[in-house]
Amino acid sequence: MPSLPSPSLLTLAATFAPGVILEHYLLLAAILFAIGMLGVVTRRNALTMFMSIELMLNAANLTFLAFARVHADLSGHVTAILVMAVAAAEAAVGLAIVIALQRVRGTTNVDEVRTLKL
C-alpha cells in the first residue's frame, strides 16, 4: 500500500471505491447511533426511548449493509433481516409493557417508575 499523504481524502477514496466510501456510511451510522443514544439517555417518555432504540438498531443495520457491500458478502443482509425481526419482537413486547405501565401506574415517564417493580 502506498502512503497516503493526499490533501483530499475524498478524491483519494474515489480511487479505492467506485462510490461513496465506507467511512461515510460508518460515520452516518455512528451519528444515528449517537442520536439514538442521546434520546435514550435524555428523554423520559418511554415511547420516545423505544423509538430511539429503534434508531440505534437501524444504525447497526446500516453498518452491516455497508460492510456487506464492501465485501460483496450477503451475510450482512441476512443479519440485518434478523435484526429487523428482533426489533419487531422487541417493539411488540415493549409497547405492551408501556401500555401495562400506563394502566397500572398511570404514566409513561420512566423516571416516575423507579421501584424496580410494576
Binding site: V40, V41, T42, R44, V110, D111, R114, L116
Partner: peptide
Amino acid sequence: QNGDLQRYAAVMAIGA
C-alpha cells in the same frame, strides 16, 4: 441502584 432507568442507561452509554 435507585431504580431510575435513565440513570442506568446513562451509565451504560458512558461505559460504552
